[in-house]
Design a protein around this nucleic acid. Sequence first.
DNA 1: TGACACATACTACCATACAAGTATAGTGGC
DNA 2: GCCACTATACTTGTATGGTAGTATGTGTCA
Lengths: 236, 236
Amino acid sequence: MQDIPPLRPSEAIAPQLVRALRTAIVMMHVQPGQALSETEIARQFGVSRQPVREAFIKLAEAGLVEIRPQRGTFVVPITRRDVMNARFIREAIEVAVVGVLAERITPAIVAELRRLLDDQRRAAVKDDWPGFLALDEAFHRTLAESAGHAHAWRMLDPIKAQMDRVRYLSFSGASPLPVLIKQHTAIVEALARRKRSGAEAAMRKHLREILTALPAIAAEHPDLFDADSRAAATAA
Amino acid sequence: MQDIPPLRPSEAIAPQLVRALRTAIVMMHVQPGQALSETEIARQFGVSRQPVREAFIKLAEAGLVEIRPQRGTFVVPITRRDVMNARFIREAIEVAVVGVLAERITPAIVAELRRLLDDQRRAAVKDDWPGFLALDEAFHRTLAESAGHAHAWRMLDPIKAQMDRVRYLSFSGASPLPVLIKQHTAIVEALARRKRSGAEAAMRKHLREILTALPAIAAEHPDLFDADSRAAATAA
DNA sequence: TGACACATACTACCATACAAGTATAGTGGC
DNA sequence: GCCACTATACTTGTATGGTAGTATGTGTCA
């Protein structure tokens, strides 16, 4: 694992490790299938094994690593099945969220969403993928919060991480930023018009984008996708 | 905490503690707001504090306890808001599940669901609430698995736990078993007729049952519901 | 009597040591 | 060269001890 971030003494160690490891996993700095050792991570961060162990437990609960007793802790491989499962859950929830929001939308919320879209367009012009992903996150979070369902976004965090790894692989352009922005825009415009079914359909379309992108991404990174991806493809 | 289950030496301690504590919390053997101490639980189970700590971390990830550093670990209080949030998520996901299932239903699946309904009717005649709850669990799990979305049911487990505490409080009859069985039956019959919208509506109705039951339950157990329940009631 | 300071008890967090299981490498016998 | 056995290295899981922060109780003083 490269680029070990310094730890802040004022904060408990374990949560910091969770964050650092989660980021490293999502941003593909540690690879799917890679082994992470309590002892080694502890050595790298200059701490004891105990908080590393705690971080591993949390990451395992989040579905990002798998702890195999006596054998090791492994970064969970990416499978198409997992990605599609995550998408299914996200779609179910986020479609419900925009359904609620369409009926309680206000001009102020629309304005805020449009401001986020403007920011996204600026990031796209600069080909600033990390910046765009942060704005994408803010966009979806704002939708949930505005609908009074911030809890739903929080709950989706581990689900999202599965898809985020694929998102980082998308830097190659499997999902061009203008496509994503256009989809975001369609959601906002349907909401502005209080068109519940339109907003739901737009969100569905947006979250299905990854189904389009996934085969190309997997083909481009066959080493990163698990063998069971093949079976999942036929189930699509 | 009463009725400490014996630990099986062949299995790691921490997962057993998770199960025991989760059950105790869901079945209201430990009360909302109650403090759980690493040291005390370790003493009661005859183990060291370490696996207790690990169990607490997992339960905290599942939203059942809150770990406050230096102060203690507390069973999360029941709030109407949390219950309703859980219901919202369950509805989003389970409606999506039956939507998919309506289009891929088979006579064998229908037969299995009807068999579960028969079992539920038998449990209801005997007023066997624990037995009924287990069959309710099996019913919902079967729906998800049959839809090819077993992952969704697994993912709902922590969400469900929030609602299950309320379910245990329902023994008093706030949701009579015949009402629940009728709702289950409506779901199955709509699925059998491949009526997607009918199945979705029936599932919605079923999961909204708790909205009907919640005020009565909270009124009956005011000590178990957190004060913020009042605010959530107005948001309903 | 009330306020403040100090002592004590309690807590979770982290460090270190020990234990049990698994995987791999090395050695000896056939 | 192959196979079986043993030794070693590695892993996670658990036990124990130390640390820092928080809460509560007690004693003193105005």
